Amino acid sequence: MRTAVPPRPTCPPATAPAPPARRTAAAAVCAVLGLGLLGGAAVGGWLTAPPSRTAAEAAYERGGTLWSEVPVDDLFPRTVHAADAGPGGASRDWTRLGVAPDGDCASALDPALARALQPAGCRRMLRATYTDATSTTVTTVGLLVTAADGAGMRALRSRVAAGRLDERTDMLPRPYAPPGTAAERFGDAQRVSWWLTVRTDLPLVAWAVTGFADGRTGTPAEPARRAVAPGAASVAAQAGLGHEARELGTRVESAYRAAARR
């Protein structure tokens, strides 16, 4: 809204020539009055102007609706290459097998994990599944766009960290298994490693879960944090499944964050 500027004050014309000292004093008084009124108008306009958003606030707001406007290939690339993402710095390549149709958030998570994340709300659950270059391993990557504000996301992150919820084997994300692909036998029983992070700069929970493509069961599940630790000797570690979950999850999360900052 535009602030009205008060009219500049005028001094009545003298009916007779005034002495020079009086004319100088009168002119000074008029100048001071004019500057004061103009300055007051400027201050009033500054006080009533709406505050501008910071870049971080704009990115956070955009992060809540980004999924509706960014092409799916920008969020879930068709192919991903990582020069040193495998055990010992080995190169890794993945191909996208499919993108999940719209669905509710609860069906994409184990019940205990869904309950833990529920306070933040759910605007959208985005998922895609990848396989490695040999079609030996499969990984589902997910982005849960929440309805929480910054304080809500900070509280959620604190709860996840305090309870180590990203390491509990009863709180895993669930796979998406596109029919007719290398991932069609990738179900809950085939999960071997997973990765999860709660962002506070965006209303976002990012995760990834990985396993073998041949449908084998009985492999103990291990969080990626442990499977990528130096000296880890579990099946998840030696097969590089922890590395795959972490790398693909981080790549997709970074793509979403970059799109929110544009």
Rank of each mutant, 00 (worst) to 15 (best):
A128K: 06
V145N: 04
T139N: 06
G142A: 14
R154I: 00
L202A: 15
W194I: 04
A148H: 02
A133H: 09
S158E: 15
P178C: 12
R127E: 00
L156V: 11
S193T: 09
S135Y: 01
D188M: 02
S158A: 15
S158W: 08
M171P: 05
T129W: 00
R157Q: 15
V145H: 06
T129N: 01
Q190N: 14
P173V: 13
R191L: 14
T140C: 03
L156D: 09
L143D: 03
L172V: 14
V145S: 07
L156C: 07
L165C: 01
T200G: 02
G152T: 01
R157E: 12
L196R: 09
C122E: 06
S135F: 01
T137R: 06
D166I: 08
D166H: 15
L144C: 05
A151C: 00
D166F: 12
Y130A: 09
T136G: 11
M125K: 02
R191T: 12
R174P: 00
L172M: 15
T140F: 01
A148G: 04
F186H: 07
V160D: 01
A133N: 05
G152F: 05
W195T: 13
A133S: 13
Y176R: 08
V145M: 09
R127L: 14
L202Q: 15
T169D: 11
S135W: 00
S158D: 15
D170F: 07
D149W: 04
P175I: 10
M153T: 08
A133Y: 03
P179V: 09
A133I: 03
L165F: 07
P203W: 10
T181N: 05
A147I: 02
T146R: 02
R159A: 15
L204D: 00
E184N: 08
V160T: 05
A182P: 08
T146S: 09
T181H: 07
A183G: 10
G142Q: 14
Y176C: 08
G180R: 06
A189C: 04
V198R: 01
M171V: 08
F186K: 05
P179K: 10
R123F: 03
A161N: 13
W195M: 06
L143T: 04
D166R: 13
T129Y: 00
P119E: 09
D188W: 02
G150E: 15
G142I: 04
G150P: 04
T200W: 01
T136C: 00
A182R: 12
D170H: 00
R185T: 14
L156G: 03
P175Y: 10
W194R: 02
R185S: 15
R127H: 06
M125I: 10
P175G: 07
A161S: 12
C122V: 02
L196I: 12
T137A: 12
G121K: 00
R168I: 11
P119M: 10
A182C: 09
T136S: 11
L156Y: 11
T169M: 11
W195V: 13
M153G: 03
T137H: 11
T197W: 05
T200M: 06
S135C: 00
R191G: 10
R185G: 13
L144V: 11
R174H: 10
T129I: 11
R174W: 04
A182S: 14
V141K: 00
G180A: 08
P178N: 12
A133V: 06
L204H: 11
L204G: 11
P179N: 08
A128Q: 07
M125R: 03
A189R: 13
L143Q: 04
